[in-house]
Design a protein around this nucleic acid. Structure first.
Lengths: 219, 219
DNA sequence: AAATAAATTTAGACAAATCTAAAAATATTT
DNA sequence: AAATATTTTTAGATTTGTCTAAATTTATTT
């Protein structure tokens, strides 16, 4: 089935809200989407008619299985584009979200599958949010802080929680980026710093202050 | 200024039509865009009000300088995305156009500048059409058929006019793709075939039949 | 140049997505 | 549980982009 941009946006936000609260109500969706309650009601009727939404007047609402699948596909597209913008085009993370809000509505399924492969089937976007697969399944993989990483275990950098220019400069210098493979070699008790091997590159030392912002995953 | 998708599409098609015919008329634009003359008239008024169009009732129309710049920016986006889809994601050329029709309306200027750089500032899209720069300037570079290329001159593959599976298989085998650098080494009068050096790869022989579909440029 | 044909525009309707203001339903307070 | 407040929905308007059908202008033909 084919959805308008507005429909996709509503579905996406309902998904996010129901993840926290179960049932969603009109006002909170309107607030989240910066629109009015009456507009939300109109859209709810439309989504119900398309069998994307379980909705009874005045009783709140939540997505059907089909609605959830649709939401997860939009979220998948959003996060893959974020990864692309950040890792391939070198965008600062603050700028990535707004552009992905547009790109997530491009409709071609083959585009997304090819983009996914081109990016190396990443599991997390640059904010550390998991990227659903084409079936809507969210990867079971956990993320760890580098400081928690078992010694010598190879792991892939999935996100960096502080993206200040100073942090980015430091990561660039050590050739650490999202997608880099690294190994934790040693912890120093004196100052909490750790020695890291960045695969295909040199070894380096990261202060605790830096390391606590770097997240990785492994299988 | 900010334009709707429909406005951008009208501007783009007016540009293409006026390139051939100078003044554009309502019916031919409607035919090209698969819409009705009355709808075109409505849009013409809007574009005139925004100073994108020179238009007098019943007299035909053409873009103002500002309209042309807007058109060229949409065309630039379209062709850069086509290049991306083809060269980076490996799409067959028949599929590239439809997806680029959607992507061309993504609004971020920084996105396009970064995409352009990421792609290596290509001069031609995979169909051989020139890609305007960010000022709307179309590259002055000419394309040549490989058969016309002076011996030993290094040139870059810009497009391939026949993209049948058989052709693509052959190109893949010789590691020739859009963006490849090559040199013509020798012409054989007997069958019209040529010997080509594909830079960073081996030398190979292309039949005239194959070679006549390969276009290159150099400066 | 009058009649006919073709192209273009206008007038008015329609669908999608939104809004405001009023009405209805539900929740909360006293 | 009655009164009040909050939430949600309805009714009707608005904007954008499209359409059909009729009217108007321009072009072509006899």
């Amino acid at each position: 089935m084919n959805f308008s941009i507005s429909e996709e946006n509503h579905i996406k936000w309902i998904y996010h809200l129901q993840q926290k609260k179960g049932l969603v109500n009109t006002n909170s969706l309107a607030a989240e989407m910066q629109t009015k309650a009456a507009s939300v009601t109109d859209m709810l009727k439309k989504l119900k008619a398309k069998k994307l939404l379980q909705y009874e007047k005045y009783k709140g609402f939540k997505l059907t299985e089909m609605g959830k699948k649709t939401a997860l596909n939009v979220i998948r597209k959003h996060r893959l584009w974020e990864y692309f913008l950040s890792v391939k085009l070198g965008f600062e993370w603050e700028k990535v979200h707004a552009i992905a809000e547009e790109l997530e509505h491009i409709s071609s399924d083959e585009l997304i599958q090819r983009l996914d492969d081109f990016l190396g089937n990443p599991s997390f976007d640059p904010h550390g949010d998991p990227i659903p697969d084409s079936f809507g399944k969210i990867p079971a993989i956990k993320q760890y802080n580098v400081l928690q990483l078992p010694l010598n275990k190879k792991a892939v950098v999935s996100s960096v929680s502080n993206q200040s220019p100073e942090m980015l400069e430091m990561l660039k210098h050590h050739k650490i980026g999202i997608g880099s493979t690294l190994q934790s070699l040693k912890h120093f008790a004196f100052d909490g710093s750790i020695e890291i091997k960045v695969l295909k590159n040199a070894t380096c030392i990261l202060s605790e202050q830096v390391a606590k912002n770097i997240f990785v995953y492994y299988d």
